[in-house]
């Protein structure tokens, strides 16, 4: 442990902590994505996202995704695939 640098000793979830109050893109199960400002999270990847836009993609085609807007939404962690910062 003592050989590790500061950045190495950080855990993956620490990267999510830096995204608090920033815009994130969350990829979810069921061909869905959620874009919005991260307001809270926990170790299960449960999240609260504000000013959120949900994109629901058609499973088969290349057609445009359905977009749904919500001002404040809780996302249950077991649907989460990945969380990525966007600027």
């Amino acid at each position: 442990m003592s050989l590790q640098t500061e950045s190495q000793s950080q855990e993956p979830l620490d990267l999510i902590r830096f995204q608090l109050d920033e815009t994130v893109l969350v990829k979810l199960r069921g061909a869905r994505e959620m874009k919005g400002k991260l307001q809270g999270y926990d170790s299960h990847c449960n999240m609260v996202i504000s000013e959120a836009e949900e994109y629901i993609y058609e499973v088969n085609g290349n057609s445009e995704p359905v977009v749904k807007k919500t001002e404040m939404v809780f996302v249950r962690g077991d649907s989460v695939i990945l969380i990525s910062p966007i600027n």
Binding site: R17, Q39, V48, M72
Partner: peptide, 22 residues
């Protein structure tokens, strides 16, 4: 999957601080 709620029923700064603390 989701729980949608009113934005003004959530204290955002409190929630962010609580997340950092947790």
């Amino acid at each position: 999957r989701y729980v949608h709620m009113n934005a003004n029923s959530v204290d955002c700064t409190l929630l962010q601080d609580a997340s950092r603390r947790e």
